[in-house]
Amino acid sequence: MPTEYMHKEIAQLLSRRLIFVMGKGGTGKTTLSLSLAFAAEKAGKRVLLAETEEGTAIGRIFGQTEINETPIPVSDGISIARVLLKAEMAAYTHFHIKSGFIAKRITGSRLFDYLATATPGLKEVMTLGRLWRWEADRQESGRPVYDIIIVDSPATGHVLSLLRLPKTLIRMIRVGPLVSQVKQLDALLKDPDRTALALVSLPEELPVKESVELMGIARDEIRVPVRMFFLNGVYPDIFSSRNVENAHGMIFSEEGLGRLRASVSHRKALDAVVAAARHQYTRREIHEKYIDYIHRAVSCPVVEIPFFYTNDMAVGDMRQIADQWVAPPGAPGEGPDA
């Protein structure tokens, strides 16, 4: 994707109030959430990076073991927080039950715990309720406290049930104090100017197939389409675009390699170098196949996140990704060349 176009698309994505990052386990949801948060910060926004109850990755990255519903600032523009179901339920109960004594008895009861786990949609409505209140938070000037809320969701199924929630809940509960809230939530989620889904996947067969399936579900069933597709861990194009002839002929064909081997004295070193080159060349070929596939299969913009040659990506790596996504100030549309 040309840099200028990518800057524009990312800026558009980041103009939303609420972004849900979704994808299968191991595809890089937290990487993407953080990179988007850094990009939004770079674009001058105040960001709330939130994870749901099951998540622990974001807190850990910033050295915070126990984060809760009170946002903690971790940089100039980013605060992090976590939605905790029981705290939300308690707050909600205290709001609806006038007697503090009874409310306390309710939230302390095991029946309450049970209902929290087993009542369809209750967990989701509490999560969404919290996101919604963060969205509604205003400063005295009327400006939102957070320009953008990025939600690192633990599992695909969880996001889907979050978004499916209004329908399920209205069907389940029908009447009661929840329903009016649910309808407002629904309006926020279905508003394409305020809410967006970002999907992350890997350029491998099964993740790619599953993502395309997921996009279909989001579009047709949930009716909150995926706005941007991120392909994570894309191997760099070291060999194929430049010197294709040379690379193919002299390194990757048996004949060329045979000639090369015959001409050098450090053969063991050559084997090691060629093995590394072949691995990356083959990987890149596979990745290109799935990049092409994704471009054909999806209609939203596709953004690639490069493979990082490490086992534990650091905050700095994600800042580096974000730097590619945002045009430097003063040069709108003029991105730095990678």
Binding site: N243, A276, H279, Q280
Partner: peptide, 22 residues
């Protein structure tokens, strides 16, 4: 020995270096 064009040598070096670190 000029066995490969300079660009190809650089690519090979980069590739080996990155992969070895990984």
């Amino acid at each position: 020995k000029k066995l490969l064009p300079p660009d190809s040598i650089r690519d090979l070096e980069t590739s080996y270096h990155w992969y070895y670190n990984l």
